[in-house]
Simulated assay, not measured.
Amino acid sequence: MKVILVVGCCFLPILAMAQPGISEMQQAQQNLSATFFSAFDCSLVLATIFGIIGAVRIYHNWQMGKDRIDNEVANWFFAAFFMVLAGAFLKAIFGI
């Protein structure tokens, strides 16, 4: 019984090295990092679009004489800020 256990332990490293998948996992990580950086750029583009649209709408409302535009300023600002933070948060979570 002990002989079988010793022989099995000797062949265990050989079997562990023969496992496929390391190169596939590295390829998947490279694909994820390439896709993620484009998603991060997309979040920055969306934040820019939110900022521009918000600025135009706020300027229009201000020129039309609306009194309380404070809430609208905060809404558009935090929408753009959330998109920037979401991209940075995802980048920190995935570590790529």
Score class of each variant (00 low, 15 high):
Gln27Phe: 00
Gln19Thr: 06
Ser23Thr: 11
Ser43Glu: 10
Ile58Val: 15
Phe37Ala: 14
Val56Thr: 09
Val3Ser: 15
Leu90Lys: 04
Phe37Ile: 12
Leu90Phe: 09
Val73Trp: 10
Phe11Tyr: 08
Gly8Phe: 10
Gly65Met: 00
Glu72Ser: 07
Ala16His: 06
Leu12Cys: 08
Gln19Leu: 15
Asn71Glu: 05
Ser33Tyr: 01
Val7Arg: 04
Leu44Gly: 11
Phe36Tyr: 01
Ala47Ile: 01
Gly54Ala: 04
Gln29Ser: 02
Lys2Val: 08
Thr48Cys: 07
Leu12Glu: 06
Ala39Asp: 04
Cys9Ala: 15
Ile96Cys: 11
Asp41Ala: 06
Gly21Gln: 01
Cys9Ile: 09
Phe78His: 13
Ile52His: 03
Ala88Asp: 12
Val3Met: 11
Asn61Ile: 04
Ser23Arg: 10
Lys91Ala: 09
Val73Gln: 04
Phe36Ala: 15
Leu15Met: 04
Phe94Ile: 03
Leu46Val: 12
Ile14Leu: 14
Ala18Asn: 11
Met1Asn: 13
Gln27Leu: 00
Ile69Asp: 13
Leu46Tyr: 07
Lys2Trp: 13
Leu12Thr: 14
Ser38Pro: 00
Lys91Leu: 14
Ile22Phe: 09
Leu44Cys: 08
Lys66Asp: 08
Gly65Tyr: 11
Gln27Ala: 00
Leu5Pro: 02
Glu24Ile: 00
Phe82Tyr: 15
Phe37Tyr: 13
Ile96Asp: 09
Leu85Ile: 13
Gly87Ile: 11
Ile96Val: 05
Ala80Gly: 12
Ile58Thr: 02
Glu24Ala: 00
Ile22Ala: 13
Ser38Leu: 03
Asn31Phe: 06
Phe50Met: 10
Phe36Arg: 01
Met83Ser: 14
Gly65Val: 02
Val56Glu: 12
Cys42Asp: 05
